[in-house]
Design a protein around this nucleic acid. Sequence first.
DNA 1: GGACGCCGTTGATCCAGGTCAAGGCGCCCG
DNA 2: CGGGCGCCTTGACCTGGATCAACGGCGTCC
Lengths: 244, 244
Amino acid sequence: MPPFDMGRPLRMGAVGVHPCGACPVRSLTVCSALEEEELSRLADIVQLQRLDSHQTIFSEGDAASSLFNVTAGTVKLYKLLPDGRRQITGFLFSGDFLGLSVHDRYAYSAETVVTTSICRFPRRQMDTLLEEFPKLQRRLFSMASTELAAAQDQMLLLGRKTAREKIASFLLGLSRRAARRGQRDNPVQVPMSRSDIADFLGLTTETVSRTFTQLKANGVIRLLEGSKVQILDEGVLTDIAEGG
Amino acid sequence: MPPFDMGRPLRMGAVGVHPCGACPVRSLTVCSALEEEELSRLADIVQLQRLDSHQTIFSEGDAASSLFNVTAGTVKLYKLLPDGRRQITGFLFSGDFLGLSVHDRYAYSAETVVTTSICRFPRRQMDTLLEEFPKLQRRLFSMASTELAAAQDQMLLLGRKTAREKIASFLLGLSRRAARRGQRDNPVQVPMSRSDIADFLGLTTETVSRTFTQLKANGVIRLLEGSKVQILDEGVLTDIAEGG
DNA sequence: GGACGCCGTTGATCCAGGTCAAGGCGCCCG
DNA sequence: CGGGCGCCTTGACCTGGATCAACGGCGTCC
């Protein structure tokens, strides 16, 4: 047994000063909509959780009992076909939220990619706060709209882009999101496996690997230690991503 | 010049009894969230428009000045790559809404597939109503969540399904949505061209055509007059759609 | 410290679906 | 009523990426 059970939820409302005020990613999250007073109400219902890599947060079809905020790490969302084929519908990083549902069931599964911290908001209590704070509702709506736009980009990628264009788009997307979070955008961290990338882009691991090799040979990127990728020519990579 | 200019917007607030009360698809739309009093406020800002087939409603990158509700007909949403490759991200029917945006620009283009009626809500005024009627906000959020779930299904389809599975899923999807609108679900109307279907499913028109022929030869469907498709064995079609 | 297993890479071959080409069949328009 | 133009279908062939296979590196567990 470990000295601290980090998997056990931590009720933050219990401590004197709630942690949301000091949350380093607050400005990125749904919580940025709130003032101090409201924030403390949110803190009353939140549970912090730290999860190892490759842990399931919830599975497709589970009762959708919570909403979540990623505060550190990486999460993947995916859907499966009965024979095991998998489509990863998104990767989430700090500041991103997950857990929206229709008909009270999650429509996809969520799993950590690396060690990850999340805030869990029980849906019932969250619904109450949403009624009480329209700002929160609006912020959630705006984040869902952004998600929807990203989903449409991903459909264009999946339906109409070549392997090379998919990989280029993927790397640029990772880099831009890192920048938005205030993290290093070049070289960019690529924490997920080839197999995860393949299932996100509608490819196989072999094709992902070959395409990285090819972009490297073309002098567009470099593969670095610690799953980092250096973008050597962003202009060219952008052109490739757009089919140029 | 035509005797009536049906393309000219019709301000409905001007007439004595607003038309939303009698709207035949109200229960399907965002408007179902509202009571009579609120509905008339919505009617004050709405413009009804009737459009011929293949008319552009707005284009990707346009200032997002309105939200829309489809009340009759069919609309397609799509994104283009610079070289003209196209991905249709969704088809809309009566009751569906469109026009959500991020950063005040539409992220996709919208075009009618057949003769179509839409309600146009100017964004500025809509925003005011959203503030005033949280129910409306919640309804819009819920519809966006549903859209998001559909987008994830479509990603699974685009990334991981075969041509046969894609066509089967497409027909079942059309049929189920028709049923939800209270329309005939079998035989099901397929108002869009092979080329539209191809660009929705990430295929070519040739492959779409061949796959229809193949499903017909297998006795799963029949192609009828007037762009209708009869589903002869829904169980088999469902199995095909899920990779069975 | 050795063996095993997982991940990533590379090579050889295959095939689903794309591309190119040719008609057929309505439908509109003169 | 005839010609032309979009659509749809079908056929022949091609190819990008999948599949199958082998192997090296590296971490983990006896």
